[in-house]
Design a protein around this nucleic acid. Structure first.
Lengths: 349, 349
DNA sequence: CTGTTAGCGCCTTCAA
DNA sequence: TTGAAGGCGCTAACAG
């Protein structure tokens, strides 16, 4: 790489180290280190001089050296199954917003819905001595769970609140959310309710389980009205799945969609077919994306606290990291809310 | 943090190091290091034995130690102005997909459209000795550009192809794209063409400049038909901006929207107002999101190579990193494509 | 409150 | 092709 460097101006002759600052401030290196890491252990006057020297010299600590010496990083590992899924980008925003200004940074790895890849990535991460780990859901492999169990750092599993966590769990009950959405459709008077699902990751499956459970209880469940695919969700796919569903069960009068993309696609396809929504077909999505309330008619959906999952996760990690004594396992259920809108007809309107 | 650790099973007693592997394989530590970093320098037999030992012991290199010793990381710094903007999430996917399986990882920082924050983050990153840096656009502060100029690693500026890069540039001409979209609207017969813009970051501004330039050339530019806001883009905002525009220039017959979210909002609001699209109002979006082709009518948009920007950026970095001699400045213009669809009327259709 | 001493695990340099 | 010596910059552990 030397050649590469030589192609650019090479400015730095000597990296400024702790020792440089120490000399400049007339103290020892460790005092400088302390005024950075634990200022309360350093006298007011020393602190001031050191701070001045740090500014004067433009000192910036070397993370690698610090990590090597302390067996600790400021990196939080984040394992997500997909970058495509907008659900995770909202969580990401929450995480980054909440981390803003702190010394921690996030390192993302994408395991593409493969538990084996996830396990491998956990191994890799743990070898970097992360400050914390964040994983999606509770459906890791057994080996993976054991690794995390033994990890010398807080571990948060997010998105779900059903299931058993390794350490802490922050999310919502997708089963309950599926029940609630389905119950809302039934309460609106729909009787031949279908389910459209793409990808069908563990959370989607729990939503479906909720759907099924609710309808079975009401004596309305009909497996012919369930269409799912392993393909990634998209608006276009919503239209396709609707066609599939109608081919099998043309009298379906309402649909619970796995997410809002699918639901929007269903709405658009229904419009094209001249099917009246919500009169002939009720639609309920999931996640309540920003777009959904602006569709015509506006889309009934289930609002999920994606952004808050991010911020709460950081808050929890911070607590665990700063005051270890409070670091207990925690299950935080952030809930959800069914938002009735135009795509589900109201009784007695 | 000791307390925290004690709450969990503490398994590892001794971290497996190069030396352990060396002993196991009957060679010296450096030989192990070499079979990992530059296997071609190690004899076949030694290599084999070392590899076996690595597997047997489950050795994983310590990144911090490696970085400290070599003054080099496997971390690529990525600075983006926003995590909300779906444009960047597509680029992200491209980056992560292309990086899959390589030793490099990405560290994201969000500067929230603040050049000062960006400069600070560049400083921080450069102190971590990144393997490479990726920034959005060419509108950094002067100080920031100087820092990057002197950086001992390849620097790629992405998204844009207008403007002067510090090192390499991978993107498209937003000015040309703005012109092309506007030209398309004019070619369809629209004459009172407006512009709706949210956020108005540098790239949006260049698209607007293209819009203006095209219309001025055709003698059609009317500043009253331009409505912009610093607010973040959203579907809902599209509707609001349309209302603002019609309040000022009710006879507007076509709109170039800064992006597809806005354009979708415009379409939905037009539907609510009973405005016929494309007969009374032509709409052209930007970015060609997946949803756009499924709207009714489908949305004319400008397809941008977001995913490819990600993959090409990685390809370029790899080249620069693996074969330094090829590490030349490069400007890669990935182009764009206007996709005419239902929201812009066709002549003689 | 401050300093000294010893590494952390790896890679660079030089020698064989 | 392989090895030995030394140090990257910082912090833990202990002393004072």
């Amino acid at each position: 790489m030397a050649e590469y460097f030589s192609m650019k101006k090479k400015t730095e002759s000597h990296r400024i180290t702790l020792k440089d600052v120490a000399t400049h401030a007339g103290v020892s290196a460790i005092t400088v280190s302390r005024t950075i890491r634990s200022p309360q252990l350093v006298s007011e006057s020393a602190r001031k001089r050191v701070r001045r020297s740090i500014d004067a010299l433009g000192y910036v600590p070397d993370a690698a050296a610090s990590t090597l010496a302390s067996t600790r990083t400021d990196v939080i590992g984040l394992l997500i199954p997909s970058l495509t899924n907008s659900v995770f980008t909202d969580v990401l925003r929450g995480l980054y917003d909440a981390l803003e200004g702190s010394r921690f940074s996030i390192q993302i790895a994408n395991y593409r819905y493969s538990p084996e890849t996830e396990e491998k990535l956990v191994r890799t991460f743990l070898n970097q001595k992360p400050a914390g780990m964040i994983l999606a859901g509770v459906d890791q492999t057994e080996a993976c769970r054991r690794l995390l169990q033994a990890a010398p750092c807080p571990v948060v599993q997010i998105m779900d609140s059903d299931g058993e966590a390794v350490d802490s769990l922050i999310g919502l009950s997708h089963f309950d959310a599926g029940r609630a959405a389905t119950g809302h459709l039934a309460d609106q008077g729909y009787r031949r309710i279908g389910f459209l699902g793409a990808r069908m990751d563990p959370r989607s499956q729990r939503r479906f389980a909720g759907f099924r459970s609710e309808l079975e209880e009401r004596g309305l469940f009909d497996p012919d009205r369930v269409v799912t695919t392993p393909k990634a969700s998209s608006v276009g796919l919503g239209g396709t799945l609707l066609s599939d569903l109608f081919a099998r069960a043309p009298d379906t009068d309402a649909i619970f969609c796995n997410n809002d993309d699918l639901a929007a696609g269903v709405l658009f396809e229904a419009q094209r077919r001249g099917i009246r929504v919500p009169e002939d077909l009720g639609i309920c999505g999931f996640n309540d994306l920003e777009m959904s309330r602006h569709l015509n008619p506006s889309l009934t959906s289930v609002a999920t606290p994606r952004y808050r999952i991010g911020t709460e996760t950081v808050a929890h990690l911070m607590r665990a990291l700063e005051t270890p004594e409070s670091a207990e396992r925690q299950d935080i259920n952030l809930g959800f809310e069914v938002i009735p809108r135009g795509t589900t007809k109201r009784q007695g309107g």
